[in-house]
Design a protein around this nucleic acid. Structure first.
Lengths: 160, 160
DNA sequence: TGAGATTACTTTCCGCGTCAAGTTTTCGGT
DNA sequence: ACCGAAAACTTGACGCGGAAAGTAATCTCA
């Protein structure tokens, strides 16, 4: 009545690792989100969408592509875009070459917002992530995370 | 108008690492949550709470301690416990030694639920995490995650 | 060329989780 | 012994994000 009857339970090292990963997943996004909200009034999802659009040719992307590159559902992205459009950072219009698709285009104000916001966000990523890791640790983290991310990806989506 | 004027931008390796970590944080919790919901009708938060109580002496813990060990806010935990209590897995009662605190105690049904659910969850953790990593990669991931988690922890909480 | 299937969103409904405020109990100082 | 402060929750209000259903445009192919 005191031990769990489990064949492949985690050993002590695995348990430590899993707890560390769990804490990382719990706290890192919360911190980055908090930084963006405090300094730019944007959620992490908002920022990712803006940043991803700004990285596209002509600052324009199809929503379905944007959803894929930001790891958002189309449903979620739709809401994010509504907000960003209301705020004037983005405009949506139907793709002239395919009326089903809609294109998202960064406005000048949106671009200015990204330019103003990116440094602080990158700074936060450094503060919480890279500043605490040696080059070697960073490389190892990247490699391990990539493998795990690929294993946990939704539909065999090994994109990239 | 095409490059972001950023002094300490991420280099290519850092960018890849950051994206891999981002995907891990996006997908791993979603997968584990989905497994638990499908197989046990529990959210990941529910399961963590149950598991943590089951690990305590006499299957009993103070809520504030439980909140700390599960990385939940007291507010969130309060709602989780309401659910679990309604389902009959847990009971709450005031701490006899300090009327402010309340103790959570796993019922027999709750213990049975943990016993029935844990193997599948551990299996999922293995499938998405450890089965994809060598011992060395696993160790490196744990070390890096621990450092980052500690840097991103809420209030200098370097507990453990 | 004209259904029926598909693609690409959008919207509605709902649960989860947070913040802020409220309640109860205990502690600290006089 | 009493009053103010602190601790430990609980609750109300709110935003985020997902699943499923709805809508509009485009393809498929007979």
């Amino acid at each position: 009545m005191t031990s769990i009857p489990e064949a492949r339970w985690l050993d002590q090292d695995e348990n430590r690792t899993w707890h560390a990963v769990w804490k990382l997943m719990t706290w890192l996004p919360a911190r980055l989100d908090a930084q963006l909200r405090a300094d730019a009034g944007l959620s992490l999802a908002d920022y990712n969408a803006l940043a991803e659009i700004s990285a596209a040719p002509d600052h324009t992307v199809r929503l379905s592509e944007l959803a894929a590159s930001t790891n958002m559902t189309l449903s979620h992205l739709s809401r994010v875009m509504s907000r960003l459009e209301t705020l004037g950072w983005v405009v949506r219009y139907p793709d002239p070459t395919d009326g089903r698709s809609t294109l998202a285009h960064l406005t000048d104000g949106g671009w200015a917002k990204v330019v103003a916001t990116a440094p602080g966000h990158v700074e936060a990523v450094r503060r919480y992530l890279f500043d605490n890791l040696s080059a070697e640790e960073s490389r190892a983290l990247g490699a391990a995370a990539a493998v795990v991310a690929s294993a946990a990806a939704p539909t065999g989506s090994a994109r990239e």
